[in-house]
């Protein structure tokens, strides 16, 4: 199996605190991999290492046969798109504009084209808009294109964030708790959406606390505890592993200060 994404011994230290400790993880093309673990386990930090938002203290990330530099833009251009645990839409842009920003890395109009409205600019602009509308339709927000994203309901904002990431045409989509804060209805819709994304042949790496969601959707699940991979295997294996259960409910987990950015500290 040639992995699409392959993280090797990624370690992230903040001062004396090791948030992510020698984590290795592979994601194959078209695969959905779940990343679970108790709060503060370092899941979001690991995401940030993958996407170049943090520069790992050591270790490396290979994507599509190339090393990913710790530059978020380069990572995005290489084909890794992400969503954020706490939604980070461009609040004062419309839904459509948000998705159009997602096209940025896939378009090339430069200042000269734009200033003189050269054909390339016009062509790309029309194209960008069409594709953005398609992605909005894909996630079921076709009607909401002209709404300001800050005015949208919470569940729609999550879906819009996914649409924005999809517009980048990534090979790998990183979803950070896509159903956090959703009601059961919205969660079902999100599940359905992710299944459809998988249908597009995209690989997905998803952080999630909703176990039903994870075990019904993922091809493989990795459990992160205190910054290290506890187990990485088929859903059934992970589900029945006593250590995973223990990590979640067994012995109390240290309430060490979370190094997870705005990370995993919410309930």
């Amino acid at each position: 199996m040639t992995a699409l994404l392959s993280a090797r011994d990624v370690t992230m230290k903040f001062g004396g605190l090791t948030a992510v400790n020698q984590v290795s993880l592979d994601v194959a093309p078209g695969e959905i991999v779940g990343l679970i673990g108790p709060n503060g386990a370092g899941k979001t930090t690991f995401f940030n290492c993958l996407t170049g938002m943090y520069q790992p203290t050591s270790g490396e990330v290979e994507f599509d046969g190339q090393l990913l530099p710790p530059k978020p833009r380069r990572v995005a251009m290489a084909g890794v798109a992400r969503t954020f645990q706490n939604i980070r839409l461009f609040q004062n842009m419309t839904a459509l504009e948000n998705v159009m920003v997602g096209r940025y890395a896939r378009t090339g109009t430069n200042a000269i084209d734009a200033v003189f409205r050269l054909p390339r600019h016009r062509r790309e602009e029309t194209e960008t808009r069409r594709i953005a509308e398609e992605w909005l339709d894909f996630v079921g927000l076709g009607e909401a294109a002209d709404l300001l994203s800050r005015n949208m309901p919470y569940g729609d904002q999550r879906r819009l964030e996914i649409a924005r990431a999809l517009a980048l045409e990534p090979k790998l989509l990183l979803l950070d708790e896509p159903t956090a804060g959703m009601n059961p209805q919205e969660t079902r819709e999100a599940e359905e959406l992710i299944t459809r994304i998988r249908g597009l042949g995209m690989a997905i790496l998803v952080i999630e606390h909703d176990m039903r969601f994870i075990f019904s959707l993922c091809d493989r699940v990795a459990c992160l505890v205190r910054g290290a991979v506890l187990i990485d295997g088929a859903p059934e294996t992970v589900q029945n592993d006593p250590r995973v259960i223990e990590a979640y409910i067994g012995t109390p987990v240290d309430v060490a200060p979370s190094a997870d950015g705005e990370g995993d500290s919410d309930a």
Partner: peptide
């Protein structure tokens, strides 16, 4: 709006 998010979306 959000510099970090923009960068993560591939904005230069």
């Amino acid at each position: 709006e959000d510099e970090r998010a923009a960068e993560a979306m591939g904005v230069n």
